[in-house]
């Protein structure tokens, strides 16, 4: 049986520019821990050099929600925001269940969904052809707060209230590919990054 093409349908839906979508969060961010990886680790440092930013590099595709969970359990007095790509999320869908099972309330997973494996050059994920519904899966996993934003106006209006919703929270941001700018930067030495991050957390 021939399946209907989903790529054409998907491509006409709105997508936000990645950097602008991240700026919205940067503008409302206070003292939350922010974990970035893959594309977000490339873009977020252009906007933020906060001591509680943790650039999860090199090569940690799909692992960000679990690192965020560990931090959330370790630091229950802080909020943790963990960025993930849609390709990374597809690699670790079971992490949604583990997060809910843990009982952690202070974690927000934000999936930057561009429908592509961007850092490898823009190949389509299987999620596009499957018409994968990330928010539906988050609801099914038991996340009490789940939202999806396709446009900047609605995302901008909602971002400031995001952390007032019951946690853990799941957010899908539909973002546009960045084109030829996909290469990840060489990260600074991990030992230095970890030392600064732990110092900012007050961990010896």
């Amino acid at each position: 049986m021939t399946q209907p093409s989903t790529v054409g349908t998907d491509s006409v839906l709105p997508r936000m520019p990645l950097l602008t979508a991240l700026e919205v969060l940067r503008d409302v961010r206070r003292d939350e821990i922010v974990v970035t990886t893959m594309g977000s680790a490339r873009e977020w440092p252009k906007l933020s050099q906060h001591p509680l930013d943790f650039q999860f590099l090199p090569s940690a595709m799909g692992h960000s929600p679990m690192l965020g969970l560990g931090l959330a359990l370790a630091q229950p007095q802080r909020e943790v925001i963990a960025f993930n790509g849609d390709g990374g999320m597809l690699m670790g869908l079971s992490s949604l269940v583990s997060i809910v099972a843990s009982g952690a309330k202070n974690l927000t997973v934000i999936v930057l969904d561009n429908g592509l494996y961007e850092v490898t050059g823009g190949q389509a994920t299987a999620g596009v052809a499957a018409r994968c519904d990330f928010t539906g899966m988050a609801v099914a996993a038991g996340f009490p707060s789940v939202s999806r934003y396709d446009g900047l106006d609605v995302w901008r209006a909602a971002a400031g209230k995001l952390l007032q919703q019951p946690g853990p929270r799941f957010v899908q941001l539909r973002i546009a590919p960045v084109g030829a700018e996909y290469h990840l930067p060489a990260p600074t030495p991990i030992v230095d990054r970890i030392a600064k991050f732990r110092a900012a957390l007050g961990v010896k």
Binding site: F54, L67, G70, A74, Q75, G92, S98, I194, R198, L201
Partner: peptide, 25 residues
């Protein structure tokens, strides 16, 4: 505390976050 995960690969990364956050998993 007991932290249950769905895949063993998740366990190492949760433990990494706990360690970075000052715990001993």
């Amino acid at each position: 505390e007991l932290v249950r995960v769905c895949r063993e690969g998740e366990a190492w990364v949760v433990a990494a976050g706990l360690h970075l956050g000052g715990q001993r998993p």
